[in-house]
């Protein structure tokens, strides 16, 4: 049960937050954005943290999910759930097709290729105006309904988005602790080494890439319904980079680091708005500062710093970081 300790703590925080602050903008509104970003980040971390592959194109998968839901529900009046499934199917296909050639690339070449992929998808959202609505986007995306329950208020979205996040974390935990997970860690350690041990690296990398794309697409579909409006600006390469920053800032190779990173990076602009024109400068300085002083990310970095304070407890929490 130990490996799920972090999961239960996370669930507890998610449940308690709106009870303590029932009408707080930062919980019920920003909390939804955090949860959706975190869901993508957890998926991306499977790829980055456990296989050591970078993707600067995950906003594209997020966007494919969102546009599938948006287009199918508005233009063809599909049921949102079928649209969501279709979004996952399309993402699965796209990811499967590009994964093979793209994952043969290494390091910065992979970064560039995924970045390029993201930009191409974004142009495909902008240009065919008659289909996608172009830069003005798609409006009037209908409300999501779960078992007769309309998801149309902030608090309901809080529950759905965070429920999705918990589901995602649960899946990720199980994946990591499965046999694939073991193989994964081997890949990150040394690809050649793992290969010699008889691990079929290519297949595993592709599978993880697809899984992480599906995480993003799922979050994207929810995002489309939550916003009721989508436009290509929300899925540009800026967002891809933001996602990578969330993962790295929070700390890779822990399931909770990226969630922490997503929370920090989503909250920062919300709190920095008071600095007006200084906002951009401060955001950049904070990013640099964290990476210079806590190169392993906030999660690992902070828990190591706090360790001496609560010696007994902290040892176990650092251990759980691995799981």
């Amino acid at each position: 049960m130990n490996r799920y300790r972090g999961f239960f703590v996370l669930a507890l925080i998610i449940i308690i937050a709106p009870i303590i602050f029932p009408d707080s903008y930062f919980v019920t509104v920003v909390g939804v954005t955090i949860a959706l970003n975190a869901l993508v980040a957890v998926g991306l971390n499977l790829l980055m943290g456990y296989t050591g592959q970078i993707s600067l194109g995950h906003a594209a998968f997020f966007g494919i999910g969102a546009y599938s839901s948006g287009l199918l529900t508005t233009m063809f009046s599909w049921n949102p759930w079928f649209a969501l499934l279709m979004g996952l199917l399309v993402t699965w296909l796209v990811a499967e097709i590009i994964a093979r050639p793209i994952l043969r690339l290494k390091g910065h070449y992979l970064a560039m290729a995924t970045l390029g992929f993201g930009i191409i998808i974004n142009i495909l959202m902008v240009q065919p105006t008659h289909i996608t609505g172009g830069p003005d986007g798609l409006s009037d995306i209908p409300v999501l309904n779960i078992l007769g329950w309309d998801i149309d208020s902030d608090i309901r979205w809080y529950i759905v988005a965070n429920g999705a996040l918990l589901l995602g974390v649960w899946l990720a935990l199980n994946l990591i602790n499965s046999r694939i997970g073991l193989a994964l860690r081997a890949v990150h350690g040394s690809e050649v080494g793992a290969q010699m041990m008889g691990v079929d690296i290519e297949r595993i990398k592709i599978r993880i890439f697809v899984v992480s794309a599906l995480f993003a697409a799922f979050a994207g579909s929810l995002f489309a319904h939550q916003q009721a409006f989508i436009s290509p600006d929300s899925f540009s390469f800026h967002f891809s980079i933001e996602l990578v920053v969330m993962v790295v800032l929070g700390g890779m190779a822990s399931n909770y680091g990226p969630i922490f990173g997503a929370a920090v990076l989503t909250m920062l602009p919300e709190t920095l708005v008071v600095f007006e024109d200084y906002e951009v400068l401060i955001l950049g300085a904070i990013m640099m500062g964290i990476m210079i002083f806590l190169p392993q990310g906030l999660w690992v970095g902070l828990s190591q710093k706090i360790k001496p304070l609560f010696l007994n407890k902290a040892t176990s929490s650092v251990e759980s970081v691995g799981g």
Binding site: D136, G137, S139, S231
Partner: peptide, 9 residues
């Protein structure tokens, strides 16, 4: 227009 359309709902 993008930010306007986004907040209309």
């Amino acid at each position: 227009s993008g930010t306007t359309m986004a907040v209309i709902p």
